[in-house]
């Protein structure tokens, strides 16, 4: 079994902790407690006949151009950038934010996930997709367990590239 370190980053309140809780424990809570510091969760996944232990870093959410400590990325194999489809400010400067994550982590590809799709109608969602200046890998809902597994599988795939 191989261990892979992956990080979830993005603005505060976008649902990083909820995505991890849904993926690792299959749980969801409406309560919002902002994450301080880093909690690491483990989950063993099977991907293309490989058993992989994912070390998932839940990094505290940032605000605006706040930087994530570079030390967190040491040894990271992949990263997921999460934004909230219902909050414009979490994806308006996604270009700059992604560039910053790439520079800090040294990773070339980042999985881009838009969370909280349950808060929008399909029409509103399409508008957001049009507005986001980069390719979104997956639109998820941690609350409704929609596409969460797929998002982490994509992240796992990235660890093997």
């Amino acid at each position: 079994m191989i261990a892979k370190k992956v990080l979830l980053v993005g603005n505060f309140g976008v649902g990083k902790t909820s995505l991890i809780r849904r993926f690792v424990l299959n749980e969801f809570s409406e309560d919002y407690i902002s994450t301080i510091g880093v909690r690491v969760s483990k989950k063993v996944v099977e991907y293309e006949n490989e058993t992989i232990k994912l070390m998932i870093w839940d990094v505290a959410g940032t605000s605006g151009n706040e930087k994530i400590p570079k030390a967190y990325f040491l040894g990271a194999h992949a990263a997921m950038f999460v934004f909230d489809v219902s909050r414009e400010e979490t994806y308006l400067t996604i270009d700059e934010n992604l560039q910053m994550v790439k520079e800090l982590s040294g990773l070339q590809n980042i999985t881009i996930v838009g969370n909280k799709k349950d808060l929008l109608t399909q029409k509103e969602l399409n508008k957001v997709i049009e507005q986001v200046s980069v390719n979104i890998d997956l639109i998820t809902s941690a609350k409704e367990n929609d596409n969460v597994e797929a998002a982490f599988m994509q992240l796992t795939a990235q660890t093997l590239n």
Partner: peptide, 22 residues
């Protein structure tokens, strides 16, 4: 658990600081 995957990547004889872990 945060040390798994991190310590392997450390550079020799270079101090390294990880702040705010749980």
């Amino acid at each position: 658990p945060f040390l798994e995957g991190t310590v392997e990547a450390l550079e020799t004889n270079k101090p390294f600081l990880l702040e705010g872990m749980v």
